[in-house]
Design a protein around this nucleic acid. Structure first.
Lengths: 205, 205
DNA sequence: TAGATTGTTAATCGATTAACAATC
DNA sequence: TAGATTGTTAATCGATTAACAATC
């Protein structure tokens, strides 16, 4: 099994490789990648050897093949269709800013208790009542949750009932993964508090 | 020194305590908090004993005093003034949704290369030219960075020059903390990719 | 060949957990 | 007193790093 930290590193390796490729580079060494990620070169080699990503004892790693193998390891580059629930500002930011979903998924529809518009940037926004039929008809497996705090738990239950397999949760409510569904909590309030603490404790007196 | 994971736990302890308090509870046991955070009760006790947060051998921890001591440990509840740079949808989400900054800070101004409005929800939006004077006059120490990807690095340099001490970075560019400034990277694209990987690798065949 | 880098084993490190005496 | 929970020490666990033989 592969843990969260390790997945994060592999995604970062792959992004660095894309950048190096676009600069015209062909090979890379473990210490280059270590520098880029701020980790020891030994960890890079350990990561790669764990999944038999091959290097050359003198010439390092070939970027093209490494990148292809990483893609495969990370379950390919084809974008998963996603829906977003609660069409406020965060939802609009995610829809508007294609970079966020670039290599992870594609937002194909939004849902809201009271949609202000029929579309936003060519993405249709439906009423919540449509959710069950839409999810079934389009075989949606992943939802982004950007509803207000008090709607979070109830909506999560609904998503579980619809057999949703993954939730990216932006509400401050900490949702727990279960047997049938993986939750990734992005708690922005927590990140702000964490930063203010770190700054105060580091720089105040 | 206290690491990121530990800070996160302490913030979560404190939030749980607030909720318990609002339910009228007076005392709590290490196993209650462990359950709430999904960790072993021993870790809760270890965390608390590390900072001499006192419990009672039979009656657990007194919520009021524990909460006060945690507040102090986390550098108080008074909100740090923050600015937000790049006033697109994410910025509006953060400004609009006071919950995000609730116990961490208060957004007092926004900046943009070309502000669409003078204000958003009572927060003034200034042109980027005003940034240096504003930061100095209002003694701003923390900035939230929500500019487009290609502006990220340059803006970070400017912030360092203005002696900003903390940056919450929402751009996909991974900024590195330095001697004079702590960066907290919130990479939403990475979180999406991570979730799709976890879902695919867990549930596909 | 000489030099540099991988792949891997062993050592280190730190965080979490188990266990239990102390004690309320 | 009997029972339950803390506070702390020792054990465990896993992740990272150091080191180095293999080899390109």
């Amino acid at each position: 099994m592969i843990n969260d930290e390790t997945v994060t590193r592999f995604i970062k390796y792959n992004r660095i490789l894309s950048q190096l490729k676009s600069l015209g580079m062909a090979r890379v060494f473990s210490n280059n990648l270590g520098d880029a990620l701020g980790i020891a070169p030994a960890l890079v080699r350990k990561d790669f050897s764990r999944f038999n990503l091959p290097g050359n004892k003198r010439g390092g790693y070939e970027i093209d093949t490494l990148s292809e193998m990483l893609d495969e390891l990370l379950c390919g580059r084809n974008l998963e269709n996603m829906i977003i629930i609660g069409c406020g500002h965060i939802a609009k930011a995610l829809i508007n800013h294609g970079d966020f979903t670039k290599d992870g998924g594609k937002i194909v529809a939004g849902f809201d208790i009271f949609p202000h518009d029929e579309k936003f940037k060519n993405i249709p926004i439906y009423k919540n009542e449509i959710l069950p039929t839409y999810v079934k008809e389009h075989n949606i497996k992943i939802a982004i949750l950007t509803v207000p705090e008090d709607a979070a738990a109830v909506m999560y239950e609904k998503l579980l009932a619809l057999d949703i397999k993954g939730v990216l949760n932006f509400t401050p409510v900490e949702l727990k993964s279960c047997e049938s569904c993986i939750v990734n909590n992005v708690n922005i309030g927590l990140e702000i508090k964490k930063l203010t603490y770190m700054v105060k404790s580091t720089f105040n007196q």
